[in-house]
């Protein structure tokens, strides 16, 4: 565990040494703004004379969809950026080869790098999510209903437990691919695909009535199987030979 944490801590430190990381976090806040407009549209659809109770119900449904989809959108976007530090750059600069010649096992390195990408991404996302809920309330919900509406418990569990777990699983799978393929950037398309899918769902409220908690639990199980299969492909030889410039 010590080695896993050492690898993760180094990578996180390395990423946060760079100013562009902070710009990226600011960008995460920026792209969550359209949700504000999304809620106004939902209120518009509810009608001008809708009761406070109806608007609160609309707000709750909106927050449920937002809390279920927005975190994964933002997490994947940040993962794309952070994984460049954790694996892509290390392979290109051949620092990974030196790390693998130490007593660190490949699995420890894999887990360390997965944590280094997943943990800051989830942390930044949770921060953005908290701010988004406050802004939605202060900007739209409270002026119209007079009360502060919070997402329901299931949404919170989905957003704060299932999404981080799912992010970890996706990052782990992408990390294996980045470690063993000769063009690790290609693996990033997995992040980008998830990001766009969930971003569309967030801004269009396309999946407002879906039960994401169940979907995520099913995907988590599937991703665990995928990671188990992928981990069998993980050998030092594959990593070294795919690191050739």
């Amino acid at each position: 565990m010590k080695i896993i944490l050492a690898v993760a801590a180094k990578d996180i430190k390395e990423a946060f040494r760079n100013r562009s990381t902070y710009i990226y976090i600011a960008f995460l806040f920026l792209i969550s703004f359209p949700t504000l407009e999304g809620l106004r549209t939902a209120f518009g659809r509810a009608g001008q004379g809708a009761s406070d109770a109806a608007l609160e119900s609309t707000s709750r449904a909106f927050l449920r969809a937002t809390v279920s989809t927005l975190p994964l959108t933002l997490t994947m976007l940040f993962c794309t950026y952070l994984s460049a530090y954790a694996i892509v750059l290390e392979k290109a600069k051949r620092t990974l080869e030196s790390l693998l010649a130490t007593p660190a096992s490949l699995r420890q390195v894999w887990m360390g790098k997965t944590l280094a990408v997943a943990v800051p991404s989830v942390a930044a996302t949770v921060l953005v999510l908290i701010v988004a809920v406050i802004v939605l309330n202060v900007g739209v919900i409270v002026p119209r209903t007079g009360s502060f509406v919070l997402p329901d418990a299931l949404s919170l569990i989905t957003g704060l437990v299932l999404v981080p777990l799912l992010a970890f699983e996706v990052v782990a799978a992408v990390s294996v691919l980045q470690l063993i393929v000769s063009n690790p950037r290609v693996a990033n398309f997995a992040f980008v695909a998830v990001f766009f899918g969930f971003y569309l769902m967030t801004v269009t409220q396309l999946a407002a009535h879906w039960d994401f908690s169940l979907i995520y639990v099913a995907v988590l199980a599937a991703m665990a199987a995928v990671n188990l299969a992928l981990s069998r492909l993980l050998t030092k030889e594959r990593v070294i030979l795919s690191s050739k410039a």
């Binding site: 051949r94 620092t95 790390l99 010649a101």
Partner: peptide
Amino acid sequence: NRKRLGFVLESDGLYENA
């Protein structure tokens, strides 16, 4: 078993920003 072994590889393997 590589704990008692030290190495310098062809590429220095140093983190330039650190």
